[in-house]
Amino acid sequence: MDISHGTVLPDQNPVYRLTQVSKIYRKGGREIPAVRDLDLEIRAGEWLAVQGKTGHGKTTLLQLLGGLDRPTQGRLDFGGADLAKAPESDVRKVRASSFGFIFQTFNLVPTLTAAENVEAALIPLGTRHADRRHKVRAALGSVGLSDRAQHLPAELSGGQQQRVAIARALVKEPRVLLADEPTGNLDEDTRDEIIALLDTLWRERGLTLILVTHDSAVARRAQRIGLMRNGRLSIRQDTRA
């Protein structure tokens, strides 16, 4: 069900407001638009799933939302700041404090233990060592991995590694959780476990969850589902109250 195209839903207090956002890559003199003229608002505490084929701009959109890249044009407001124009140091601070990332390939540092990987997310915040240890324990506990704290990533299963990555994303208590194909490398049972965990954490913590996925079974659990096609986003489902 196609509800809107490039929808702008009026909201009193959106966490994100994107206005005419485009991202164009230049390669060999050619312009490749990854995101085109996107207008979008995302409410605090919303779960938005973004679907679409490979190469249609899903990951680029997620990177723009996460402050990992900047739009070529348009305005990208997050919490009152335009991430498109803000100095890199400010964007970095927002990344460090407000965004939690979950990646398809987990992206754990292979030489660090599960606990140290989670701790790495607190380093840019300047959290004291004792507080870090306490928060890391709590984060690993929340994903059910208290007993794997001293294991290296190579000693953990794919599902466990993704749990560590979720703990790393959550340990700093971010406002937004950005997940790029978090179940793409997992089997069906583990996928369900991880999605159930994300669902629980989203509900319990009131997070804004933006999740990019190919998997319709995963996307269906979101409040809104958007479809990226040729750099344009169309909202196909909206079950928000």
Binding site: R95, A96, I123
Partner: peptide, 16 residues
């Protein structure tokens, strides 16, 4: 590179 990219995504300063 992916490891450093991840650390940057976590908010690590380039200097760090």
């Amino acid at each position: 590179v992916p490891e450093f990219g991840t650390l940057k995504a976590l908010g690590w300063r380039s200097g760090r």
